[in-house]
Design a protein around this nucleic acid. Sequence first.
DNA 1: ATCGATGGTTAAATCGATTCACCAGACTCG
DNA 2: CGAGTCTGGTGAATCGATTTAACCATCGAT
Lengths: 336, 336
Amino acid sequence: MTTANVRDVAALAGVSVGTVSNVLNRSKPVAADTAKRVLDAIDKLGFVRNDAARQLRVGQSRTVGMMVLDVSNPFFADVERGAEDLLGEHGRPLILGNSGESITRELAYLDLFEEQRVSGLLITPVGQVQRRLERLRERGSPVVLVDRHDNAQSFSSVSVDDLRGGELAAGHLLDLGRRNLAFVGGPPEILQVSQRARGAQQAVLERDAGRIRMLELDTMRAEAGRAAGEQLLALPAADRPDAVFAANDLIAIGLLQALTHAGVRVPDDIALIGYDDISFAANAAIPLSSIRQPAREMGRAAAELLLAEIENPGRGEYRHIAFQPELVVRESTAGR
Amino acid sequence: MTTANVRDVAALAGVSVGTVSNVLNRSKPVAADTAKRVLDAIDKLGFVRNDAARQLRVGQSRTVGMMVLDVSNPFFADVERGAEDLLGEHGRPLILGNSGESITRELAYLDLFEEQRVSGLLITPVGQVQRRLERLRERGSPVVLVDRHDNAQSFSSVSVDDLRGGELAAGHLLDLGRRNLAFVGGPPEILQVSQRARGAQQAVLERDAGRIRMLELDTMRAEAGRAAGEQLLALPAADRPDAVFAANDLIAIGLLQALTHAGVRVPDDIALIGYDDISFAANAAIPLSSIRQPAREMGRAAAELLLAEIENPGRGEYRHIAFQPELVVRESTAGR
DNA sequence: ATCGATGGTTAAATCGATTCACCAGACTCG
DNA sequence: CGAGTCTGGTGAATCGATTTAACCATCGAT
């Protein structure tokens, strides 16, 4: 008992397979009563189009692939929703791959998307995958970088001005009168992280005030932040920073846990600011200052860029949309 | 300039397409030097297997589909990671669909997965999709229900005993001496929600103490919780509950925001408990009591059940794994 | 010397939807 | 009235990988 195919449908409806396809895809007009017969047959047989066959013929899938660094980070989850919403309006499903910041997994998903001939790809890359992405594009799957400004300008992208974000954060801490800063960041291969770090360093240089030390983490999750907190606490009190800028809110939350647990007062002893302004930031034990990125809008914008390239391909013209980050002050710095 | 296919590879390597396929799939032994010639040719041409053609022939995709209620909920993100880890070990990619608790979107993704002939499906259903799932199974895609005990026992499932979870939560509130409870829950069509609600009601009945009122929300997100908070605040003070059980932590966090914002003291005026014990619960403004579910393990277990059914199908024997929920007490109830 | 095995390889059939060139009528218009 | 134009419909060819039956050496055993 094999599953029904177009031929069975055609036979039952008393038409040719071509007509069935025309009904399915509205590619050519079909008389109303013929269409009804076909639809009835489809219904009766429980026919479901075999997407593999369709793709094989058409050469491309309708679905769009998306690779995110970490689905459990609410920031990416919001980006995803924005993209999914817009793509949904255009009848394109979005499938999600979760690299978990692992290069191996990223490559595995790229293989998958390439074999599936996805119609396009939204990606926040982890490793050095420029060549892979170019190959994908040559094969007909345009690529849009998300939250990652492309230096070479060879892909469309949406990004936030992370340099500016870093400046905002560190500038704010300096404005509070803090002079001994620390930046706690994820792996520097992640461009956003190094940009935020550079922005912070620039702020310090520009104002010619204070100093900033850099701490490097393996991941950008809350546990890593907690570990970094222990590290800070281990420093001799005199050397301890009086303000910390975390590369994202999860890290900041981890730090906050470690610090408050050890009796350090935030912001009195150490002021703390995060990045992303995820919804939990406002509701942390001590409401967290942060740098807001418009996640949902970024997702929509990225999907728009991608759709444009899918629908009229091959003009080799890449657009870049840069969103401006925004400082959100809460109790973890200054308060009132 | 079309992309290379097996025929091109075969030509360049001086063998037949059958041999190329044998190299690709190790389905038959191939002489070492022949294999090398083929691999070189693949490399030179940048050949990437067309998955659509493969699927068409084989009848099934290797990928597993997963439908979650809400990717931005850390609980589901953890379940996803657990499943993805295990499936990854078996060389099966996982693609994620996000229903966002919308029945329309759920159906759209089911269509997609059915058209793609995924090799299996992990799903936390929103709507009444039993028939659809049965059809998927008949078509060769086994289905495992996640975090949703199947009454009819007709699918394998992993679940948490939500009835017990509800009892634990409400029982704990009653043990604190609270007598005027409220349950704030998502749409009752979601079985987990109604189970938690029933558990809570049972606890009240069993102890024959106090009363519990039920509030219904449209979604399970923090905003909904905030709205519910306003609703509670609008009640005359005498009628206001002295303890609230939220159907998940996001709702609880929303409630917490609304209540503390209005000057209500938690837990003194109103004790508050959530569900899921997501990592943010411990770090909310007032650390949140919650009912813990072992998310990661549930994901792994679900993936295991699914793999078993994929690998030896059609025995019509369905297994159910039930995890036990666990009460985690923090400051939002009792404090210390 | 012959018969099986066995290891490698091949050519052709196959999966199922889409498309394209083509056809049959009906209708319009000069 | 005949040429041209629509509308609706047909069916064979096609996409690219896998699979199966068949075939060919080569070697060992009888």
